[in-house]
């Protein structure tokens, strides 16, 4: 068998792959988990909606085109009704998904970027590096993320970048712990010893051996950091210290909806449902991934 690419551009089928790899079994476990699969499907739909938002909505998210019909209830024309400032509420909800998901994904990516090197360092070098990093983590875990985020949000008065920063600041801890545990388990393995015997530098070993072997916890950490960040964003926006208007944010909309809920229920119901569904779907998806990739089930 060769590594060459066939003329059609697809990799040559590998007939020698009769034995099934761990990924195959992870996929089997994942696909038999109904909650996780439906969470994943919902998440895909939400991401598609957020990406193609301009195509499926009538107006810009901040266009006050329907002032005359402000606070109108849902109808065939306006699926989710009109909000208090004359904006199509469906448009607002769809763009809200954009804000929520992009903050979730960017913050999760930042968490992973901070968490991987720190976790790998703590796990590989142990000793003093580990001690320092663990003390930092301890400090972060005494202060609950939401409270600290509120404080930071209050001081900085919110904003997209600030929220991403805050979410990443608290999201990396979990990634770091997951990576650290995995690296710690693998650094005593003999293939690491073998690489050391070859004269490989610690950075080479971390990059080439330990991080690739931590893919599962990294993926899990990434996916589970997303709902955390979305929750933070919604909570801060709800308190009025998150994403500033007119950028649509579900948390902000819930806050507005609260004032109208007895008479114009749609302003409260839709953002609440949107937020609940998104966070729930992401978490179910992440939990399913974790169960599927859980190294303790790998049958080593």
């Amino acid at each position: 068998m060769s590594v060459e690419i066939s003329e059609t551009g697809a990799p040559v089928a590998a007939p020698v792959y009769k034995q099934r790899g761990p990924l195959y079994f992870a996929w089997r476990r994942f696909s038999s988990n109904k909650a996780a699969v439906s969470g994943g499907i919902v998440l895909v739909i939400l991401v598609a909606m957020a990406v193609f938002a301009p195509l499926i909505t009538k107006t810009r998210y901040d266009a006050q085109d329907f002032l005359g019909q402000a606070l109108a209830f849902p109808s065939r024309e306006f699926w989710f009704g009109i909000d208090d400032l004359g904006r199509d509420f469906f448009t607002r909800i769809v763009y809200g998904a954009r804000v929520s998901l992009s903050i979730g994904f960017i913050a999760a990516a930042c968490s992973v970027l901070i968490g991987i090197p720190l976790g790998a360092m703590a796990g590989y070098f142990g000793g003093r590096a580990d001690w320092i990093i663990m003390r930092i983590i301890e400090l972060f875990s005494v202060v609950p993320p939401l409270l600290a985020a509120m404080l930071l949000g209050a001081i900085t008065r919110g904003g997209f970048a600030t929220i991403v920063l805050i979410a990443a600041l608290f999201g990396w801890v979990q990634v770091c712990l997951l990576v650290r545990a995995q690296v710690k388990a693998f650094r005593e393995k003999e293939f690491v010893r073998a690489a050391q015997a070859l004269g490989a530098t610690p950075w080479y070993i971390i990059r080439r051996h330990l991080i690739p072997n931590s893919v599962s916890p990294i993926i899990v950490g990434f996916v589970l950091a997303i709902p955390l960040a979305m929750m933070l964003e919604a909570s801060l926006s709800f308190l009025g210290i998150g994403v500033p208007p007119p950028t649509p944010s579900w948390g902000q909309m819930i806050n507005t909806g609260m004032n109208f809920m007895f008479f114009y229920w749609h302003l409260a119901v839709f953002p609440t449902a949107a937020l609940a569904i998104t966070v729930l779907a992401t978490t179910l998806f992440g939990d399913g991934l974790r169960d599927a990739l859980d190294p303790t089930l790998k049958g080593r």
Binding site: I254, F262, W265, L280, T283, D287
Partner: peptide
């Protein structure tokens, strides 16, 4: 369990208010 641990508390509160106070009108909000 998943609902309670993932959905922010204010969303749960909102849901409770919407159902029991606004819709059913059983309890004060």
């Amino acid at each position: 369990a998943t609902l309670g641990l993932t959905v922010p508390v204010f969303v749960i509160s909102m849901g409770l208010i919407l159902i029991f106070a606004v819709w059913l009108n059983w309890l004060p909000a």
